[in-house]
């Protein structure tokens, strides 16, 4: 029990350099996907805030001030592009990275997300290992140059 906790703590701090768990915000309207992803992230010791509505997303992000926002593109209320634009336009969120996670993986969507300053772009379906690995890499590389 204690060992497991310590292990998680180590993993969680990995790369953040703050001595506290990484904070993530997951914006995803499909509950089954949100449950799976938050389970995976929590297992890594990361704190996860799940938002299922596009309109509520930006306020949640401002409140949580996460290290990374994992953002779906097609959302009720407000599109992922708009939320991405809001995040990137907010100077208080300068340290927040955005991983866009979408079933729309066309070149056009990637280009548009890149133009809006997205940090990473992943398409659904993804493998759990790949997703966790990408987020870990983003956390480790925070503040460094990322290879979008």
């Amino acid at each position: 029990m204690g060992e497991e906790d310590r292990h998680r703590q180590e993993r969680a701090e990995n790369g953040t350099g703050r001595g506290e768990p990484a904070r993530l915000c997951l914006v995803e309207d499909e509950m089954a996907i949100a449950e799976a992803i938050s389970f995976l992230f929590e297992r890594e010791g990361w704190q996860v805030e799940v938002v299922t509505d596009g309109a509520a997303a930006i306020n949640a992000v401002r409140r949580v001030r996460p290290d990374i926002v994992i953002l779906d593109l097609m959302l009720p209320g407000r599109s992922g592009y708009d939320i991405l634009r809001d995040i990137k336009a907010d100077p208080t969120l300068a340290g927040t990275q955005v991983l866009m996670l979408t079933a729309r993986g066309q070149e056009r969507d990637r280009e548009r997300a890149a133009a809006l300053g997205v940090d990473r772009f992943m398409t659904k379906p993804f493998s759990n290992l790949e997703l966790v690995g990408t987020v870990r890499m983003m956390l480790e590389g925070a503040g460094e140059e990322t290879e979008g």
């Binding site: 089954a32 996907i33 799976a36 389970f39 659904k124 379906p125």
Partner: peptide, 12 residues
């Protein structure tokens, strides 16, 4: 989306 949910849940 549903394929993603299946894959993620099954993998867990």
């Amino acid at each position: 989306s549903s394929v993603t949910a299946v894959q993620a849940s099954a993998d867990i």
